[in-house]
Design a protein around this nucleic acid. Structure first.
Lengths: 361, 361
DNA sequence: TTGAAAGCGGTACCAC
DNA sequence: GTGGTACCGCTTTCAA
């Protein structure tokens, strides 16, 4: 990472400088610093003294070249400002730190080119694993693309981890950490249905995003279970942002009024929806109920506090890292070429104050 | 970063493998890949063929050891889930990517020990710069500590950048990118005062945090300018979270009722305050006005939308990276030992719907 | 234009 | 317990 000699600058002290000033061999210095080898107290003291005098730190690049080095996980995220992603990242980071691992964060901005570039960049860095966060866009090449990533990384002694998206098909060396997305949506929709709502505006998210697809199908299944006809006209796809929530509600109010509840694809969408309802003079939940999905802090900051589906984002991050660490320690002889693990965490509805029975009956 | 040979795994292809299979020297392969040296079309084609066959990527560690390598910036953040920080990080990341730089994110969790460990870790990585985000706790040793960081990094050819906190005193090699925190607070408080509010509940944040101190003193100055006595009893310090906003308002309602507005230290605190007011049966802004600080997305997701101070977080990130890049390119002979730059970006009030004139007059 | 070889800063094996 | 030293994978003179 360091680029050449920083122009005209003091060069960083090396292990040789330390050895020299302490009057010992480089091997000894290395031993003292690694601490994994018996060394006399005297020597250790001499070396440490010089180390602190020189404010010496070992060169991570040299170390890792020579075989040592800190394992590193790379987290690839679409957008660092997304609260849900941030929590996963926090989980990964925390678990990594706990083990003395380092973590890198890269953002793809939903750009496949950039994603590829980053995966390769991480491969160059020799990371222990690459964690890909967030739902996937379900286009044709997707499976092939991921399979290629997985194999590339695997061949380089690294590993691909998919968090928050469905597992890869076939015999691909990747680990998936997912949550019961469909089940959460089912439960959330059921909550609304059991409160008596029948005409529900559904805002699942981007049509091509796997996350949105699961949430929609979960809702669908709930409608079926309740024997309520599912009105496609009340489904409005769009991005996971508050603006979409706002405009979708605005439009629905005009085109298909009469809905008594909004099933939003995320808390952020719900926030936008709530604004639109208020702007239209509707009260929440008295006139219209709203529910979200994700249970990010925003959900409990809104008024009324949002009933939503809790997704254990931070835990997913921890689990993802643990999976990688375990596999690493699993050591040689571990099944290879096998499709990695597939872990699924549970979700549950968090009831707050944004749902009431429908206005009349 | 790679740890030894990943147990029992395929070793990563090296430049030698490529050279061998292409029937050329390693030097040639290196030249083709670096692209900064004339090479015959024939050779290039042969090499590239093998590279893609082997799915080869250069080892970043080896490359940087040998003098090449991608410059890297490290971003040290207290809490990755903080929206404001995330935006700065986004700014840094974006600007870094634009230049082909890599960026690392580490979280300190407000723990000085961990902060130190991270700074050293980054020093080991040979990063081009370490960017420290967010307000500082103004304890005694703070200046010394930062000065030490700055010099350590400087000596290693790296550089310390402080974002969102006051500059270091004396002759310290660090760059500061700050925003007009005090001015924003002054403007925000003035906005409230000019609307006619006189008894204002102030929730500046943690008393020891520089950020909170500036916001408080800005407010103070506004009161003075308006000739309004500043009631210390209406100031409540506490963490920057919604829970504090909630409990502070709750307590104030009990102990020092009669305030007509809340000047919150951050939007998140404002969100909590808003909840508490509602819980007490008060309407916003009809009964009590509220303003925040930061202008994170939350501000416009609340109902009513929050009047707040816009802080150009993302731009600060970009500016910070640019400062580092410029300094690097400034090349040799650049003033050294000089206290680095100190950049200050502007803030401004964003008027939304959470302020109204006080109830009676 | 291309190849050979000397490092970059550490680690770890092999002697003493 | 220590010291010498052969690499780790790549870049970059220096020659050819």
């Amino acid at each position: 990472m360091t680029q050449r000699k920083p122009p005209g600058d003091t060069a960083r002290a090396t292990i040789r400088d330390v050895a020299e000033q302490a009057g010992v061999s480089v091997a000894s210095v290395s031993r003292v610093l690694s601490g994994n080898y018996p060394v006399s107290e005297n020597l250790r003291r001499r070396v440490m003294k010089v180390v602190s005098d020189l404010d010496y730190v070992t060169n991570a690049h040299a170390r890792s070249l020579a075989g040592g080095g800190t394992p590193t996980v790379a987290i690839l995220i679409n957008n660092i400002t997304g609260a849900a992603f941030a929590h996963v990242a926090k989980g990964v980071e925390g678990a990594a730190t706990l083990r003395g691992w380092l973590s890198l964060v890269g953002t793809t901005g939903d750009d496949p080119e950039r994603e590829l570039a980053l995966v390769n960049l991480m491969r160059q860095q020799g990371v222990a694993a690459v964690v890909l966060l967030g739902g996937a866009y379900d286009y044709d090449e997707y499976q092939l693309r991921m399979a290629r990533f997985a194999r590339s990384l695997d061949a380089a002694g690294s590993h691909l981890v998919l968090v928050g998206r469905p597992p890869l098909e076939g015999d691909v060396p990747a680990t998936t950490v997912d949550y019961d997305n469909e089940g959460g949506a089912y439960a959330m929709a059921s909550h609304l249905l059991s409160a008596g709502h029948r005409r529900i505006l559904v805002l699942p998210g981007p049509a091509e995003l796997t996350t949105a697809q699961s949430r929609l199908s979960g809702a669908w299944r709930a409608f079926e279970a309740y024997g309520v006809p599912f009105d496609r006209g009340l489904v409005r796809h769009g991005p996971y942002d508050d603006e979409h929530g706002y405009t979708a509600v605005e439009a629905a109010l005009r085109v298909t009024p009469g809905f008594t509840a909004v099933l939003a694809g995320t808390d952020v969408v719900a926030a936008g929806a709530m604004q639109a309802l208020r702007a239209a003079g509707l009260r929440v939940p008295d006139d219209v109920s709203i529910v979200g999905y994700d249970d990010i802090p925003l959900a409990s900051q809104l008024t009324p506090q949002l009933t939503t589906v809790h997704v254990p984002y931070e835990e997913m991050g921890r689990v993802a890292l643990r999976a990688v660490a375990d596999r690493r320690e699993g050591g040689a002889g571990r099944r290879k070429g096998t499709d990695g693990d597939h872990l699924v965490l549970g979700t549950h509805v968090v009831v707050r104050h944004s749902v009431a029975p429908p206005r009349r009956g």
